[in-house]
Design a protein around this nucleic acid. Sequence first.
DNA 1: TATTGTTATACTCTATAACTATA
DNA 2: TATAGTTATAGAGTATAACAATA
Lengths: 159, 159
Amino acid sequence: MNAPFDAPAPAEAVELGALTGSLGFLLRLAQLRVYDQFFATFAGTPVKPGEYTVLWVIHLNPGVPQGTLARVLEIKPAHMTKLVQRLVEAGLVAREVPAADRRSVHLTLTEAGQAHLERHRATFLSVHAAERVGLTDAENAELLRLLGKLAFPTEAPCP
Amino acid sequence: MNAPFDAPAPAEAVELGALTGSLGFLLRLAQLRVYDQFFATFAGTPVKPGEYTVLWVIHLNPGVPQGTLARVLEIKPAHMTKLVQRLVEAGLVAREVPAADRRSVHLTLTEAGQAHLERHRATFLSVHAAERVGLTDAENAELLRLLGKLAFPTEAPCP
DNA sequence: TATTGTTATACTCTATAACTATA
DNA sequence: TATAGTTATAGAGTATAACAATA
């Protein structure tokens, strides 16, 4: 429609058309913004979202098999191997091969891992509040509910 | 591989705690699911979300400067350079250096680019319908509205 | 044979800095 | 000096395939 040839860009008014109604496009932009919030909040610390999430879930499920962790968090096994290796090298996670099934690896937090989790827990939870800037409590709750329906399609605990 | 969504083994009950209320976590899972939908829909075609989005916006804004495109779509300039190079090599996009500012690059679709966009337009729009499986029309509209508030934050800070 | 995890390779996206050529 | 774009490098995340050890 409006094709500026030689005219200087007015104010970067770019037509996006149906893109503004694209769930994938909006999810990407929203996630970029939320990630910016996360990294800004944890600036100066070694905390990264994927790693901290893994520590969080291991804490809540001590001894969880690595493969189960990968499936639940939808992290590919090959990636999970390297992620866990980093956490083990950092002294935060301990691996244990159970006698019952020596193929598997069960994960627990070390004391340093527990301390790391506790040290950043309040900040981690505060990010959830910062992320939703501009949304009312009701809007935030509804957004989480709708995203939950997309993220966990088989679970339907809302009668 | 064949099923649109893989049913998680019901025996793997893993406690996620506050993670289920984490906007970043839910955004990531929702985006993974939407991307799976996209790639399943475009299986067998060369269409990729980032590239098709760029073609889409160039079509709506012929002659758009590459840097403007990068800022609007929140794609880093270094990445945009390589993305556009691929599209130029594929014969879908033409670059033009305007005499008015020979530093900049203005982008337009070639005829092949137009044809490519048209050929996949219906499928691209159909993904938007498929993405929201499980949501009612009202829920989908509300989700898009709330994500839009996150994705396009108004410049009105609330002190 | 199937499963669990590992290694290896490759590709996308991101982050950063240094560089050019313009302005 | 500042801007637009490029090149280069590094890293994270993802997708595959092949593999070893175990079941």
